[in-house]
Design a binder for these strands. Structure first.
Lengths: 344, 344
DNA sequence: CATTAAAATGGAAGCGCTTTCATTTGAGAC
DNA sequence: GTCTCAAATGAAAGCGCTTCCATTTTAATG
């Protein structure tokens, strides 16, 4: 598309202007834009020329109002501070953009009330579909979306009740796998560093996965070995120090989010604690640092980009009126590296 | 705001419905929404009640069409893959959200043509303002925005010609500072790992900063000591290996982007090259790893979040019709850590 | 060349809101 | 009570597009 200079004063040219200039009716221009097959070759050429000359840009709000389709898809993420959701969103945006949709994005800083407000605003803006992270939100939000007939999809989670379409993986299973892996190595004294459980089903499920799996072999997570913190490397450092200064140290620390694990490893180095000899550390997500850090991090690889791509495909298919099967949970994978060893 | 269930069928309630239910004219409801001071207390109460009962959500597209204000602000970033722009955007979004604006976001993957398309779409969507990164784009884009009277701001850059409002810092000066710092340490054999220069004024300016500053002391950057790569840790590793396998190794490597520096440090460890004894490494941006990595990274701290906040403030003031002075360049700061030392 | 169906086009209504301008209402001053 | 001015309200137009339905044109066929 070319952007040229012939823009008149304040007022942008409208479809009517294009029509006049091309010698056709406005409705023909509309068809040219929305379904070119309905327009003759001759008209097509004249219209194309007029559009170029006038530098016409269709008025999306008017289209939305008339057609009840905004060609916008909304998304609310908990944070853009790490690249975690950024990677999902980037892929998502790229896919929907190819299909002619725009992304309207908000970050809610892990605040449920803010999320609700953002969703409301997005509904008001007439988003055609919505991508959300996780499944910790009020029922009324889903009801609103259903009432307004807005397709939506939840990522980073699965919905065991099959009530909502999810493109994600089982956080519980993932946590379970990594717990089993550590128990297989011989660990019995566990700790977990986790994000805040409240309003965060991912964190909650991971905790549950750890607890249940431990229980299956008669173990448990002592209350003071479960540390809740806001996400971040520094918080991981703090938690690690707290844990390792205790008389009864854990031999394995499961981190519910990767930055915690990085923090633990950094702090271990500073404290002169050998990882994995003295304590094993696991991460969650497999971000780029995991393979580069020393010791490299044993972690769970989550399908960050795949979720973005599949979520986009799902929603677009839905918007095209196709019958889409409820997506299946995605697989996760334990990436074994150097940060874990049998307890000494 | 409460989201309740009483939504009728397909059709959402309109302002007319609210008006009827409240026993006032639609226009009064409009005033209630846009300028409540104009409405009597009695009407206010009735309208509030009606809105709650009907679960009315204003139709943003209709508002946009009628008022010529979309309450959306657009932004195009080169990438969301690292958290670099994510942090700026997160703060930006949070600020504009407080002022009642929504963010419409696209990532263009460092592709100029994609950016142009996205801008066009955003203009079409009637964004009230636009945030862009850097200053490498066709003049016609600026002309379009000016013609449409859409305020915009460029971040991560300054505009020496004062043609465009920028909230940023001088990449050239920043690069110059770090080069001087290294020269002061005694280095004479320099290399640089940089992102692709084309369509990236930030990368270009940093290179220029290095070259010019070197030249001031009679030094220069040998052509094959300048390595251009896509951004990323792996690329940093590759470039580092390439550089350090040469007969005539550099003693200082300036990285135009932080992930390159991380890659260099990781690869240095793998190759058994001592940083900073054998070679000094500098980064650019001061992301969270810089202080945690071993050796910790001497780098330039860029005001990532400040730019987001100031850009939001600037645009909102502009949209409120206030006279806003052209923002001044932001300061940068060299953060000295462990990754640099005098050449041996 | 008439006939018919399909392709291409146009007219008009209306999406849900804001804007402009006109009118009504209320409060205070004399 | 009457007058005045401000506050509060309303009626109507119209933002730029799409949708629905009707009409015209074209191409295909006997």
């Amino acid at each position: 598309m070319k952007i040229s200079e012939s823009i008149t004063n304040k007022n942008s040219p409208t479809m009517g202007d294009v029509a006049k200039s091309a010698g056709v009716a406005p409705v023909t221009v509309s068809r040219y834009l929305n379904d070119p097959d309905l327009v003759s070759k001759r008209s097509k050429e004249k219209i194309a020329e007029a559009i170029r000359q006038l530098n016409y840009v269709p008025h999306a709000a008017a289209r939305t109002l008339a057609s009840k389709r905004s060609r916008m898809i909304g998304s609310i993420v908990p944070s853009l501070d790490s690249s975690l959701f950024g990677r999902t969103i980037e892929v998502f945006q790229s896919h929907i953009s190819t299909a002619g949709y725009n992304l309207i994005l908000a970050s809610n800083n892990y605040d449920a009330e803010k999320e609700r407000e953002h969703i409301n605003q997005m509904v008001s803006h007439g988003v055609d579909a919505l991508l959300m992270i996780g499944n910790s939100r009020d029922e009324s939000i889903y009801r609103l979306l259903q009432a307004k007939n807005i397709p939506y999809v939840l990522t980073w989670t699965i919905d065991s009740n099959q009530e909502h379409p999810c493109i994600g993986f089982s956080n519980q299973e993932a946590a379970s796998s990594i717990t089993n892996y550590l128990m297989d190595l011989g660990h019995t004294k566990f700790a977990m560093i986790s994000g805040h459980i409240k309003n965060n089903d991912r964190a909650y499920d991971r905790l549950k996965g750890v607890r249940d799996t431990l229980a299956q072999r008669g173990l448990s997570l002592a209350d003071d070995n479960f540390i809740e913190r806001p996400f971040g490397v520094e918080q991981g450092r703090d938690a690690f120090r707290l844990l390792m200064c205790r008389p009864n140290k854990p031999t394995a620390i499961i981190c519910g989010s990767e930055p915690f694990a990085y923090g633990a490893i950094f702090e271990g180095k500073k404290m002169g604690i050998d990882i994995p000899k003295e304590v094993s550390i696991t991460g969650f997500d497999d971000m780029w640092l995991a393979s580069n850090i020393t010791p490299s991090l044993t972690t769970v690889r989550t399908p960050q980009q795949q979720m973005g791509a599949l979520a986009a495909k799902y929603l677009i298919a839905k918007l095209n009126g196709e019958e889409v099967p409820l997506p299946k949970p995605l697989g996760i994978e334990i990436i074994v590296r150097e940060s874990c060893a049998p307890p000494f």
